[in-house]
Design a protein around this nucleic acid. Sequence first.
RNA 1: GCGGUAUUGGUGAAGUUUGGUUAACACACCGGAUUGUGGUUCCGGCACGCAUGGGUUCGAGUCCCAUAUACCGCCCCA
Length: 430
Amino acid sequence: MRYQKPKGTADILPGASEKWQFVETTARELFKTYQYKEIRTPMFENFEVFSRTSGDTSDIVTKEMYDFKDKGDRHIALRPEGTAGVVRAFVENKLFGPEFNKPYKVYYMGPMFRYERPQSGRQREFHQVGVEAFGSDSPVLDVEVIAMAIAFFKKLGVSDLKLSLNTLGDKESRDAYRKALIDYLEPHFDELSEDSQVRLHKNPLRVLDSKDEKDQKFVADAPAILDYLTDEAKAHFEAVKMQLDQLNIDYVVDSTMVRGLDYYNHTIFEVMTQSKSLGHGYTTICAGGRYNGLVEELGGPEVSGVGFGLGLERLLLLLEDQEVAMMSDDALDVYVVGIGDAANQMTLPIVQAIREAGFSSDRDYLDRKPKGQFKTADRLNAKYTLTIGESELESQTANLKSMATGEEVSVSLTDVKQHFKETLEQNFNK
RNA sequence: GCGGUAUUGGUGAAGUUUGGUUAACACACCGGAUUGUGGUUCCGGCACGCAUGGGUUCGAGUCCCAUAUACCGCCCCA
C-alpha cells in the first residue's frame, strides 16, 4: 500500500457517514428551535488568534497546535477548537453592532486539529459541534446553553447523563482564589507530583485536575473557589443553579472542575455519561462555560459570551456503545434489469425517468446476465425490479416485479416514463 | 514528547516458538450448473506474494535494524 492517510486522520466511508449525518441533522434541528444560526469560519487562522485566547501556558498552545509558516511567511494554525475563530469572526464582522439581535447566537460543526498522539476517539483531525451566544451577562443564558446541550444528548437517546457544574468567578474572585490555592499548596511542594510542581505557579487551578494520587489527597482538602467568590460572582452562580432547578435539570457542583483553556470564567459545566467505550466511570462528553472578556481579548468591545463544544468522534463511539439506532433511508426503490444489447440501450432513460419521479433507481453497468442482475437487485435490497428484454421492447412494455412478494405485472413504458408513481400505486397499492 | 503491543488477500485470519518445494481454513465477491429472474446446493476462480526500506543467511512471512501506520498507557483533553 503506497499511500496512507496522515497519522491521526480518518476516512469516513459510506456506512459510517450516515451516522455522522444523523448526528449533525439532529443538532441542526435542535439548535434551530433555540434560534441558533450556523456560522462557518476558516479551518485555519493566524496563530495568534489561538495563542491569545487559549492562554500561553495551556498545552493546546505549547505542544498541541498544528501550526506552520505559509509561503508568505505567515504563522498559521489549524484551528484546535471552535470558539476562538468564532469570536474573531464576531469581532471582525462587527456582529456586536446595534443592528444585530442580542444575544447573538450561533453554532458550528466541523473539523478541528490537534497535534497529539492518536488514541481511541482522539485524533489529530477530529470534529466538534459547538454553540456560542454573545452579548448577555444573564445567568439565564448560561442555563439556556446548558439546557440545549442536555436536550441534544436526550434527543439522540443518550442515557445516564450527569451535569457537573462549577464557577471560576470573575477576575477578582479568581485572583483571590489563586493566591489562596498557592498558599495552601506551597508548603506541600515537595510532596506534589512533578507535573503539579510545574503547574503550581504557572496555573495552579490545574493542580485540582490532576489524576495523580499524590496530588489528590491535597486536592481533597484544598480551599474551594466557592469560598472566594465576590458577591457578584456568587449571585451569578446562585442564579444559574436556581434556573437549573426551575427546569428540573439535575446537577452536581464540582468545585475541583477546571478548564484546559484559560479564557473561561464564571459558569463552567460538563455533561458526563458512562460508557465502556470512553473509559471507566463517568467521562465528559461535552464541556462549556462562560468567557466574558474573550471578545475584548481579540480586539472587540466588552461583550460577554457563553457556549459549549463536544467531540463527534467520542459521541459516535458512545452512541454505538449505547446502541442508539441511527437509521438512514437509503433503500433502493427500483432496479432496472436490461436483457440484451438493444434493451440495455434503453434502460438508462427509464432509470432517469424513475429518478425524476422521486424514486431511487439504479441499473447494471457491468454487463451482467439477467441472473446476475437479479442477484444484484436482491443484494441492494431493491423493492422492485423493472425488467426490459426484447419482447418488452417490441410491445413497449416492461415487467414490474415486487421483490418482496414475487408478484409481477406488465406495464407500459409510457406509463413508467410519465407516471411512475401512479403506475406503482395502481399495481401494488402502495 | 515518552513507553508497550501489533502490521499476512476484499474480510476474519493460520503459519513466525524449531528460517527450507505450490502461503491453511472460512466468509465475501466473480463465473458456471442447456437459452430472460432473486434463496439453498454443487462446481470453478480469487495474495504483482506476507506494511515499507535495508541487513544476516546457500535460503526469510518466519532472525536483526530503521521508517511508517494502528491500538493501548503516560501527558493532556473533545
